[in-house]
């Protein structure tokens, strides 16, 4: 294994430990979404299609990923505040290794979230057990990269006090603009268009449609995928630029 890969693994392992050992992060990354999945299904599934498990479970997976942006942002901003980043910068590690170290940490967390919420969904509603569940888990890694990138960007530009507030905008955006908590039928066309050019509804649609299958490949899968990837690329480029600037202005 090259020295660079070893360092990336070391940085990733550390980031994962920092996040999962914080009890608050477990509450928000796992506990809260899990409670919402079970309770919302039990309370609302008989009232509206919106809360059928085939829509709710993938929606919860993406919703839970929004918290990754909060906790990875918090980790980076705290590393900056406490001079831990300075320690890392003095080491032999290269700037791109830091970005990988923070970004790759989201995968084990996102995989656990995705498998857990799909499996719980499958236990509650056995119709979820299909090859679509594997597609759903796989495609949810794409949406996880978007939220991880958002976290790195937030951690690079916000301090430890403001990162929570700004991340809550992303969480609220995922909650309010994903269309998972309320039916979108009857909404104005302009608002629907607004939702479709933002990443939140597209991210949710992408995982829902990976699980449930698509009618129109472009509309139901490719379009949301392109939107999510475009936001992911933009946000990662911005994160790399901002992180690089912070490194230069220590």
């Amino acid at each position: 294994m090259s020295e660079s890969i070893k360092r990336i693994c070391t940085l990733t392992g550390r980031s994962v430990k920092e996040i999962i050992r914080d009890p608050i992060s477990i509450v928000f990354l796992i506990g809260l979404p899990l409670a919402m999945e079970i309770l919302f299904y039990l309370i609302f599934h008989s009232m509206t299609d919106q809360f059928e498990m085939k829509y709710l479970a993938p929606g919860i997976v993406v919703f839970s990923q929004a918290f990754i942006s909060l906790f990875s942002g918090l980790l980076i901003s705290l590393d900056r505040a406490g001079s831990f980043l300075v320690r890392l910068f003095v080491s032999k590690a290269k700037p791109y290794e830091f970005i990988f170290g923070y970004a790759l940490a989201l995968f084990p967390i996102a995989i656990v979230q995705s498998i857990l919420f799909f499996v719980v969904g499958g236990i509650i509603d056995s119709s979820l057990w299909s090859v679509g569940m594997i597609y759903g888990i796989l495609i949810s890694m794409v949406t996880a990269i978007f939220f991880g990138g958002a976290g790195i960007l937030l951690g690079s530009v916000c301090n430890e006090k403001s990162v929570g507030g700004v991340a809550s905008v992303i969480i609220a955006g995922q909650s309010m603009l994903s269309g998972m908590w309320f039916p979108t039928q009857g909404m104005s066309k302009s608002f629907l268009t607004f939702m479709r050019v933002l990443p939140f509804k597209n991210a949710t649609m992408l995982v829902q449609n990976a699980l449930n299958g698509v009618n129109d490949v472009f509309d139901d899968f490719l379009f949301p995928l392109i939107i999510v990837l475009a936001y992911t690329a933009t946000i990662f480029i911005a994160a790399i630029v901002c992180f690089g600037k912070k490194m230069k202005n220590l």
């Binding site: 070893k6 360092r7 430990k17 920092e18 705290l78 406490g82 001079s83 300075v86």
Partner: peptide, 24 residues
């Protein structure tokens, strides 16, 4: 540096292991 620079949720031993791994 003047601000304490440790990995907060890592143990003392893990902090040392982490820095040693980065130093190769």
């Amino acid at each position: 540096m003047q601000e304490t620079a440790v990995a907060r949720n890592l143990t003392v031993e893990e902090n040392i292991d982490f820095c040693a791994a980065l130093a190769g």
